[in-house]
Write a protein that binds this DNA or RNA. Structure first.
Lengths: 339, 339
DNA sequence: CTTAATTTTGGGAGCGCTCCCAAAATTAAG
DNA sequence: CTTAATTTTGGGAGCGCTCCCAAAATTAAG
């Protein structure tokens, strides 16, 4: 089986290279009858254009890069990421892009691979998963005019596109729910305060307290790192200050918090109510099933890709923004199922 | 900033295109002094060769494809995959390959993307994560002579390279441990029996029973699907038949089994002992901490990549095989910590 | 039927590399 | 110092496409 090229297909169909190219790329100006004939030859031979040649000649690679920063590498095993990737991969498939994964573990790796991202030689666009607010990659991408979509809004008002979820509102709703249930000492296990997700969910917590004129108690707030172990430690730290409810900024941390409570011999929800954030599958199977704030993770992945393609095709300005709503999912970790 | 090319670097360094190419590719026959001069220009300008041009001229893409089959898409959120990907990504980074993810959700997607995998146009090689034993992709890859490494050995003795873990021995050790603890009714929650992992771990279970002349009780064996919900259902199904220990073929399923036991009001390990398989992080934080069979998932990812690169560089024959050992990690789900 | 406008087609140039071979430079041998 | 062997260098050809423009074919207008 010798390699098929445009030229060969052209010969077989009795047309020129250019015409075959037009058919392959769905260019309009081809006589319908010719298009049919060419398409038939393509189907029969199973021809597929060489992506490398395409990239070189067309100055586009057809590849989207998903970047997971070094800082949160340890979180990559959180089920959040696979879910996000499923959405991203699915959208890539339907829009004929290839998904490429950039997982940085060390600073050298980051140094080595960053240039591949910055020159559009390799990827047509980049999706950045939640970064520390001061990550240097963002300004670099902006400066090099690489089409970029951030997952989670940036700290400052940078000219960059992003998708996000309404973290502040979601946290507000969750904490308000706890307060409405009668809890008067609601603790917070927060995400890293150098990320917008962490900051925003904390802000929602504060807003909820403020809206009911409840004074802030510093001893009930602990910054953690979105990991199970982090949630566990944070909960242990809070426990002596006698909370009767706790808002945990991620389901995975909530699992850790539940473990700390179990070890302390406390019963959920009788002794203490708990709300998570994310609604990962593990929330539903936790003991007790976790009341949590749902964010449409997979959907977010799909929309990130679609936004990115929009940027690639129609230019970077103005930056696009999209914020998905969250939804409080009530299970059994706060008491009676009915509100 | 106009684009840098080999030619431009050559001009700046006062040498020819070819010489720069040799320096970039580490080709030996360059005078040391010239090499130094050229390297300096490259460093100063920040030149990086265009990957598309390289692919086209060199007939290699520098991309490794990781394929997750449609059949197990629902398992992709299992922490096993991120861990595996971390290993794969890390090895790709150190060996200067780019990792590309192929996640198929529907049959059409599979149809559409398979050709990209089969012609070496797009990827230099493919890593296949655990497939159903009858997946048609394997023979196709073999026939097209695409460098391929399977994660998990194939069903028949196909001429294909793979890495695996000693599933049979690992399961044997786990079940023997349960038997040694005095359990006389050891149940098995198995993985899908159309996968080698599922079959092998079950085989290890059977071997352990056989080695102690314990009769096989069909009512104590249930085939499941490696999911939490699957483990839960399987455990419920087994419970009426009064097992006093259970070997569960994955940690995630073990979590489901624990949930079923908790709901049934049974205490672990007092009423029933349980062993998992994988040693995911969640095993250590389960309630009670799960005794399980450790497989070095991340390491496996690294080795898959290195094996694949070996195939790419040195040819497909003979197929390479590697089987990593497993290790029983004793925690508290089977009773006293000491064996 | 002729000419102009429009649609469709073909082929040259070029994308930025690698590969290969011949030429030039250098080193070793006599 | 001359010639042969070896190392190093340069440039042509080609990888398989896209892009663009000019030419050919077709259709519309008068």
């Amino acid at each position: 089986m010798n390699k098929l090229t445009l030229e060969k297909i052209a010969q077989l169909a009795g047309v020129s290279r250019s015409t075959v190219s037009r058919v392959v790329n769905g260019h309009p100006s081809v006589k319908p009858e010719v298009r049919r004939r060419v398409q038939q030859v393509i189907d029969e031979t199973g021809y597929h254009p060489d992506p490398a040649a395409r990239s070189l000649a067309g100055q586009r690679s057809g590849i989207i890069g998903l970047v997971i920063p070094r800082a949160f590498q340890f979180l990559f095993t959180d089920p959040y990421y696979p879910r996000l990737m499923q959405g991203i991969a699915q959208a890539c498939n339907t829009h004929n892009y290839i998904l490429s994964l950039f997982l940085f573990h060390t600073e050298e790796e980051e140094k080595k691979l960053t240039p591949k991202l910055l020159r559009q030689q390799f990827v047509d666009g980049v999706i950045l998963s939640a970064l520390p607010t001061d990550d240097p990659l963002i300004p670099q991408l902006i400066q090099n005019e690489v089409p970029t979509v951030m997952i989670g809004r940036p700290a400052e008002a940078l000219p960059v596109s992003y998708i996000d979820v309404s973290n502040i509102d979601g946290a507000f709703e969750a904490v308000s729910y706890l307060l409405g249930l009668g809890a008067n000492r609601v603790a917070a296990v927060n995400g890293p305060q150098n990320t917008m997700v962490g900051l925003d969910r904390f802000q929602g917590y504060l807003n909820a307290l403020a809206s009911r004129q409840i004074p802030v108690d510093e001893s009930l707030m602990v910054e953690s790192d979105f990991s199970e172990a982090g949630g566990y430690r944070a909960m242990q730290q809070i426990l002596p200050h006698q909370p009767n409810a706790v808002f945990v900024a991620s389901d995975t941390m909530a699992l850790g918090a539940l473990r700390a409570l179990r070890e302390a011999g406390l019963s959920v929800p009788d002794d203490i109510a708990i709300v998570g954030f994310d609604d990962l599958p593990l929330a539903a199977t936790a003991d007790p099933p976790l009341t949590t704030v749902r964010q449409p993770i997979r959907r977010l992945g799909v929309q990130a890709v679609e936004m990115l393609i929009d940027l690639i095709q129609n230019g970077l300005t103005p930056p696009r923004h999209f914020t998905a709503p969250t939804e409080l999912v009530i299970r059994q970790s706060c008491g009676a199922k009915t509100k």
